[in-house]
Amino acid sequence: MKRRSFIKQSVLGSIAASLTGTGWAATSESSVLTILHTNDMHSRVDPFPMDGGPYQGLGGMARRAEVIRQIRSQADQVLLLDAGDVFQGTPYFNLFGGEIELKLMSQMGYDAVTLGNHEFDNGIAGLEAQLPHANFPFIISNYDFSQTSLNNKFAPYKVFDKGQIKIGVFGLGIDLNGLVAEPLYGNVKYIDPVPVAREMVQQLRSLQCQLVVCLSHLGYRYQNGRISDQKLAEQVSGIDLIIGGHTHTFLNEPQLVDSPEGHATLINQVGFAGINVGRIDYRRGSNSDQLTPASKTVKVTN
């Protein structure tokens, strides 16, 4: 009994209890920061057609805009993020090259997006041509663009001041070799994400960020030894939240991974094609708050 109460009173323990126990609470009333996130939207501008498929009727960027508008009208501080692969998957991309996706994301007020491999599907020039349609930054920490025309177009990280909270966001891209035809990505150099992530954490902590968020297009996890969000969290300490993509993984709730030095890292990914938006609310926890495990109000697809 005594031991349990120690754990409960500990900060880490309370997070663990609220996350791995019965589930999650949606506590928008006391929330000081609301993170909304998507990944792998793959040019799915319109909802899936009603053709008997498993996702029929789901998604649609105009509906997503409405959801986000509603949340913004209630929530105090919103950070809207995407983990890449905005491009490719419907004829909207074949015909318009990503223009409509970026325009709509700009209207929705996306704060930061990282680069997925499909952002290179029309080559470096194809990506560059679309950048004027985005009023938000693409954040990528482990691609070296210095030998390309995109040099200095992307920041390795960005710090957001959202009310009382300072949030540091960095971005990790997947190795493009073998995934994208070489002529399309040209001289973009991929850098090992693990040391880059350590550097980013250090940098963002030194800038007094209370929350460090990684936008990752590495993929949730793999059976072979390839680097993934799971492996990243196990190897790099100090990331609070990994918003993942690439593997189109439908997680019903964020997964908690113990990082080195005991720092808890949350990983989340919400499928693909804009079928879901993930909503993470952060509230200030006092010691008494943390004794109460969160009640489960998770809304699940199907």
Binding site: V11, I15, W24, L211, E253, I275, R279, D281, R283, G285
Partner: peptide, 13 residues
């Protein structure tokens, strides 16, 4: 940083 306690909601569109 840990004083920020997260909660979660999956929002199907």
């Amino acid at each position: 940083r840990a004083r920020l306690v997260p909660s979660y909601q999956l929002m199907p569109i």
